[in-house]
Design a protein around this nucleic acid. Structure first.
Lengths: 241, 241
DNA sequence: TCAAAAGTGTTCTTATTACACCCATGG
DNA sequence: CCATGGGTGTAATAAGAACACTTTTGA
């Protein structure tokens, strides 16, 4: 998949007869979590402009395609996964943000379970790779700015919505969950207080499973109870970490 | 000002040779506050589609214009005011949201001091009027949805950023400020607790002025201390009501 | 002197923080 | 038997909620 395959010919004729080039695209910041680090899926561009730069996956929005669907399509093409948590963040539209024309882009982020798929080199991109958000170099276009805005949005939203679970396998230990919050929020949490708080919400049902084959006391595995959450939300419950 | 003066001729030629019509616009939800009510500035459309419907002020983004600038221009044309608090909220891009073509729109809201200007009928719109957000009928296009999203964004953001002041004159009483929060958040606040909290932040400097000619004990007038806020913010201070 | 809104503290309740040891497992 | 991470409770502190009367002014 190319960022902007090549610049589209676009004409907008306004009432005074002016013409201009324009188009809109969607960029999708795909987040994953692996034990310790928050990661983001980047593709290495194989065409100008910004040839050989790492970039966010994105594409022009198709004529008969909603913005949300475009973001889903990008994700599906790159990872093969569907039905993923996806949220719009911000639209970037500076006149000169794209060197080849007037292209505004709507930024989304997705939260995926990093173990749900293996990356296969796409025919469009030279490379697709998970990068720790702590080690991101200079990206193509204004993608550093876009990534930052999505990271900030995630930081804010993960505290007040039960979306952290989207990054974990269905069954997880409380320690994993704590590490997830610590990685996203870039803070340290107290183990006992964290457990007390998350368990007091009654949103986790403990499966009877445990970790296996670990060289220490095995952790109990929990599941997020989505129905319970929807039910509590109707009653005015407000999630907060 | 017309919403979409008439549908623009737009061609996007993608790599497979398809053509399609597209354009992008900005809609600006302009909020004001008058003593008791949160209001929004609407214009009555004078052209099809949605002739005679109330609509949000908006326009196509010009070729050499940033999105933010477009939102500022719409506000300036309608009200004559500049340097106003303005924030992007969400981009609406459903395929059929505009009956005459593919037009996505980036929603902004502005916070204005309602007494800073008087409305003069614009040459483009039949009518421009403040409407209480509690009494909004059916608007043109998907503007009810856009307004709702901006209202929600305002509700969330006004609690954690000192932006309520943007809706008040430079000098205001604590009771006015309280009523503002009550109107936006749609809750009742305790007078003593509210005062304690807002004053404890040390963001208000009390001018030596008082209300005059009121048939009750005159209120002290306060000013928001923006420099103080910027300074505290650097030290990690977090505004919250 | 009345009506109307301004202004002001204390107590109670709830949430948040800080903190240290024993447990179960695999190697 | 050692190393590793899992699991647990209590006391201190801070934040939030509830609540009623006096003051100042104009009419």
């Amino acid at each position: 998949m190319k960022q902007i395959p090549n610049i589209q010919t676009t004409k907008i004729v306004n009432t005074t007869g002016e013409f201009f080039q324009s188009a809109f695209s969607v960029d999708n910041v795909i987040f994953g979590f692996d034990e310790t680090d928050l990661k983001v899926l980047l593709i290495k561009r194989g065409t100008e402009p910004f040839n050989n730069y790492w970039a966010l996956p994105g594409d022009l929005v198709h004529p008969e395609e909603d913005l949300h669907s475009a973001a889903e399509r990008i994700l599906l093409q790159l990872t093969g996964v569907k039905n993923v948590y996806l949220e719009q963040v911000y639209t970037f539209g500076d006149v000169h943000r794209h060197p080849l024309g007037r292209v505004i882009t709507i930024a989304y982020y997705s939260l995926v379970k990093i173990e749900d798929f293996t990356l296969t080199p796409s025919s469009f991109a030279q490379q697709t790779e998970w990068h720790s958000v702590k080690e991101i170099g200079e990206l193509a276009f204004d993608h550093n700015e876009i990534l930052d805005s999505c990271l900030n949005a995630l930081k804010q939203r993960v505290r007040v919505r039960p979306i952290g679970f989207e990054l974990l396998p269905p069954k997880f230990s409380l320690t994993k969950l704590q590490h997830l919050y610590e990685a996203i929020l870039e803070i340290e949490l107290d183990k006992r207080n964290f457990r007390k708080k998350i368990l007091s919400m009654n949103l986790l049902k403990h499966s009877d499973l445990q970790q296996e084959k670990v060289a220490h006391r095995p952790a109990r595995l929990f599941e997020f109870d989505k129905e319970k959450y929807e039910q509590l939300k109707k009653q005015g419950f407000h999630f907060e970490i």
